[in-house]
Design a protein around this nucleic acid. Structure first.
Lengths: 351, 351
DNA sequence: AAATTCCAAGATAACGTTTCCATGCTAAAA
DNA sequence: TTTTAGCATGGAAACGTTATCTTGGAATTT
């Protein structure tokens, strides 16, 4: 069943049917009603690929994340998809698993489907592979690491604010031997987090000890392994700041196995504030980086670019704030006080 | 840039270019090479929508899940997508949030994109809304609840095996006051789990007490609330079996707040065995229902149906087993023994 | 050597829409 | 009343492929 069938039955031309479907205002209301009733009656749905072919607009956005099984991402996918649907867009999702091969195949598939834009949520990996997209002037939005180019937007994350709050919070609890477990250092965002940590420490006169900085990989297993290495090192930290929440969860798991009690013997702070953080035992203090806000920014960056006729020469920049959310995984050094959950740097409370 | 451009430059017809791209074996290798080198040189990618339009095959499968932010689903999405890509399929993902409205709009969008099949992973909700798809003879695959129809496959889950193991495990640890927190009872799968529990109890001569059966909603918050209700009830359970892992995590969180130690004061068993389960404190004993296997079954069910020319009159049935994985959230009643992690009912170990 | 078969390559019709352009009717202007 | 303008509708080209049908040259058979 196609548009011609509808046209025949409604005794109008296909052009009119098309106009009725697309709610072109000039079409006679009487005709439109006739068309619509035939459409309803037959249960006709327009063929998107034909539409896309002739109109040159696929109404598809690509969304590339590094690992959908990492709880950080599903929320992003959820929000991104919801907004997309509201704007009559579809999304093509790829979880690259940080594999350049998959990234490449993903880009290829997206180009073949003629996506109108792509949001890249890999936090600083292999932008080289996106050459093909840039070449075709497909609007892109990056987090942290995008180049300055027309049609390429960037969401800059203000890591410093939240991490500074975390470091100062720990310092206020008398911690000085503060360890930092990084993410995989090939990720630009992981490096940025580490640097924010170093700077925050120096700001308050604490010299970060290289022995207390170990590399993780943003997974729970990585957190466990990194913490094990930390325990085997020369200095025993009293607090650990982690590059993301999964790492922190790994640390909590490992310290449980090692008989180290949190927060009594060790304070732990995560980063991202995934939903799960508040369900940890004890609930995890974490630096919030709103996933839904990130998704919203990304979508609207793409949409704006699609609708803009003359692109800005250097794309647009967006900024996402971070801020500490206190829960129960930190305490006074060798003490037992448990601060109530509340967020710094923002008037509203969570939950 | 289109196929004609390639044809012109390679000095062949568009038909030959098309044949070369699709690796039709009869084309002269010399010509094919000429075509391919032009394609490489220009960085040409075929337009999928044009292909789909004329061939009548979109190479898209729909995937409907109930809640992507529920950690149970990302793994499914991951595996499903990976296999799909290997078979040159794309996936259209919808997370309905159990909202019939979103389900309906999702179905509509999928039909408009002319999906070749849809996997419905909502575990028993609102199949009525899929009428449109059935009408169009789109292959479907359900979990638990699909009707017997041509082109509709079903994955039946053998809940009884795993739940029986869980109940018997608890009984072996001398538990008799075993509570069960159900899922939302409008989900057929939640009802099935509950029934498996009741049956497993009766099998070993334990009469399940209605006061120990409370309804949850498969979320952490629901688990917390349900457990609170349980504590307020007339009988204090010594063990809790949960309809899914999220519920169990909620129970663990709530019992932590209530000063109840797991597994010393309370044994907890989850269901699904999501990856997170092993990172809980203590690691959660759970009934495994392999998410990757489920995804694999679903994909291949669709693929088989697409490639089948004459559909079976009642679709095909697949079965997915469940089995208990022991960790550290259960122990002898009022005892402290911690069994090592190992899985029953399967020779291989996990991790 | 002529007739027949075979098969690779080209020409072109489809696929289901949108969009451009032509058309003819109604309403406004002369 | 006649001419012009305006605008809703219809006709048909276009989008970029695949698939069908045709063609012509080489290979095989007689």
């Amino acid at each position: 069943m196609d548009i011609r069938e509808i046209a025949r039955r409604a005794k109008v031309s296909t052009a009119t049917v098309s106009r009725a479907i697309n709610r072109v205002p000039t079409v006679n209301p009487l005709l439109a009603k006739r068309v619509w009733s035939v459409i309803e009656e037959l249960g006709y749905y327009p063929n998107t690929q034909a539409r896309a072919l002739v109109s040159g607009r696929s109404r598809i956005f690509g969304l590339i994340v590094s690992e959908i099984t990492n709880p950080f991402f599903p929320e992003i996918v959820q929000v991104f998809e919801t907004i997309a649907v509201q704007h009559r867009y579809e999304i093509l999702l790829t979880s690259t698993g940080n594999d350049p091969q998959r990234m490449e195949s993903s880009v290829r598939r997206m180009i073949e489907r003629r996506v109108e834009g792509v949001a890249i949520m890999t936090f600083g990996m292999e932008e080289v592979l996106l050459e093909d997209l840039k070449l075709r002037k497909v609007p892109l939005v990056f987090v942290d690491v995008g180049p300055s180019r027309p049609r390429v937007s960037n969401i800059r994350i203000d890591y410093l604010n939240g991490i500074r709050q975390a470091v100062q919070h720990l310092a206020a609890l008398r911690h000085e031997k503060i360890a930092f477990i990084t993410g995989p250092l090939r990720l630009k965002s992981a490096v940025a987090r580490q640097q924010a940590f170093l700077r925050s420490m120096q700001e308050i006169g604490l010299e970060p000890d290289p022995a207390l900085i170990v590399e993780g990989d943003h997974t729970m297993e990585g957190g466990m392994a990194a913490f094990t290495r930390l325990l085997a090192g020369p200095i025993r930290p009293t607090a650990v700041l982690c590059s993301n929440d999964m790492t922190a969860i790994g640390v909590m798991r490992e310290s449980h196995d090692a008989g180290i009690s949190i927060p009594r013997d060790l304070s732990v702070v995560g980063f991202d504030d995934i939903r799960l953080a508040q369900f940890m035992l004890p609930p995890l203090t974490s630096v919030q980086m709103s996933q839904s806000e990130l998704a919203r920014l990304a979508f609207h960056a793409l949409l704006a670019e699609v609708e803009r006729e003359t692109p800005a020469p250097n794309g647009t920049e967006y900024v996402l704030k971070t801020s500490l959310v206190l829960r129960e995984s930190t305490s006074l050094i060798s003490g037992t006080s448990k601060p109530e959950e509340k967020r710094l740097g923002s008037p509203s409370n969570r939950r």
